[in-house]
Design a binder for these strands. Structure first.
Lengths: 295, 295
DNA sequence: TAGATTATGCTCAACATGAGCATAAAGGTC
DNA sequence: GACCTTTATGCTCATGTTGAGCATAATCTA
């Protein structure tokens, strides 16, 4: 069985991060590596274009997963090589789902997300209490506090995968819960694919801090508030408006188009565009966004 | 053909970063994923222990590579899932090689390394001049300057892979040079494995900036200068001594053992140990080392 | 006793970051 | 038209971080 190539296609539409899915949201685009594929990435591009009609822009490899072996099962294992791809949504395309539909607790800009974390904290505290030893309980509590930013530790938006794995272990998601047991809100996916999505979210949240990838998700021209809302949507965290502008300005990665946004409510906002020419012409770092890492 | 698991084992010995190799330095430990392996990582551990007798400590996945397909060749492709493993050398173990034997230009703490970069700069300028169009020449020059930190741009120690790939394209390494053509100093490896090593070096250099992985490479107790030399060896860059100590101190990741180093030359240095208990007990970030990213 | 060598404490300027005050420019309401 | 709401934009201030270097301490060797 050849390794499978699997893609997490991300776009942001109406300030909501979206992921491209198949089969009613249960699957991600994927297909086996074939002999004719020039490279892993070209194989991935071919499969995604074939299955969704969507061409890929910025693509990067995420992680390679293997299924657990099955006793008495086939000798061969399913190996998945996963990729993150950034793009823009196009009108009328089907299959896009909000990524917070799968991970509602990851949206800390919304009051519902924050309330859900409070509820999760209580459930996980119960789970910690069910550890066999006192030391085990303490270790679990510490891990919960760290992963969900409790006890004043501060929410770390990059711990998407760690949070999902913790909820999996605590049997609070359908993938691991016993049949009929109560589970948290949030869509699940087939096989291990929700884990792949979590990996992609974590990687993207980490990456926007030090590479200008956010502009892969923006239209040609945009206002600073639109840019901020996009970053906030991806990071799942609100930001300080004036400081956001200050940092974006000093990066010198965007320039004014000279026009102002048409449909605005308050004072009209100037439109900006990304200076494509700085890619490559510039030190690769230098796009740090005002997303403070928590203490 | 099942995917292959391949390991880059790193240790630091006498302030030199070392990599564990087989076959006279031409190969890295590796073996195919088998049906009995519980996971990719356990498969890797089994292969490495079988081939080298060395048990693995901290392990993380690096990247998955695929061979280019061969026209008329077999239908199946070699897929390599690579891992970075950190450990300590043990007396009398064979097969350890200095990683700067493979990448002499990556050691910017040594005058030879800096001189080599000067020479490479000239060779790559020639190569840039051989681009077909004027725009192509300019693009090549810009890429060379950025990758090797010329024109006052500053050396970025994390661009190990980009530098190797540039030298590969310019046919300055044996892997790509025509037979008999002059090539740069530095050992090469079989197949694509020097690229895997470059990927590991880049990842480790990036990682020591924000995770306390450097302590995986240290003995139980060490002086601050020893720690600094280890970081410098890995990063290939010298550091400011007082500032290094200030940062390490404020991380609060190490504590005094109460003893002083026995074999010292000047004023005796206090010995420190890593506070293992902070792993997990602490925000996962917070080990930033005084390795400034260049401008 | 005078270097040589390494350890260690401390200061200073420049810059980055988090928070918030103040003002500007639009539309809508009375 | 006066006034409110809304968003945009400029600016300040305290605090923290970083890069550089001065100064002193504690050991050994010539």
């Amino acid at each position: 069985m050849p390794p499978e190539l699997i893609a997490v296609l991300i776009a942001v539409s109406d300030d909501r991060p979206m992921v491209l899915t198949l089969e009613g949201g249960r699957l991600l685009p994927s297909g086996p590596l074939e002999a004719g594929h020039r490279s892993l990435q070209t194989g991935l591009r071919l499969w995604v274009e074939h299955q969704t009609g969507h061409a890929l822009g910025h693509v990067e490899q995420l992680y390679t997963f293997a299924d657990a072996p099955v006793d008495g099962g086939p000798d061969e294992r399913r190996v998945m090589i996963s990729y993150l791809a950034l793009t823009r949504t196009r009108r009328g395309e089907r299959g896009w789902r909000g990524w917070y539909d799968y991970f509602p607790w990851e949206d800390q800009t919304a009051p519902e997300g924050r309330a859900l974390v409070q509820r999760i904290a209580r459930l996980l505290d119960d789970w910690a209490g069910r550890a066999p030893s006192a030391a085990g309980q303490e270790a679990r509590r510490q891990r919960v506090a760290l992963t969900f930013g409790l006890d004043g530790l501060g929410w770390d938006d990059e711990l998407v995968l760690q949070r999902y794995e913790l909820l999996w272990e605590a049997a609070l998601v359908p993938e691991s819960a016993p049949p009929g047991a109560p589970v948290l809100p949030g869509l699940s996916m087939a096989r291990d694919e929700r884990r792949v999505l979590a990996t992609a979210m974590a990687r993207l949240r980490a990456k926007i801090r030090y590479r200008p990838v956010i502009y892969e998700l923006m239209p040609d021209s945009f206002t600073l508030l639109h840019l901020q809302r996009t970053v906030e949507a991806v990071a799942g965290q609100p930001m300080h408006k004036q400081n956001f502008r200050r940092l974006v300005a000093q990066q010198d990665l965007i320039e004014e188009t000279g026009e102002v946004a048409p449909d605005t409510r308050g004072r009209p906002a100037r439109l900006f565009r990304f200076r494509r020419e700085v890619i490559g012409a510039r030190r690769i770092a230098g796009s740090k966004l005002p997303l403070a890492r928590p203490i």
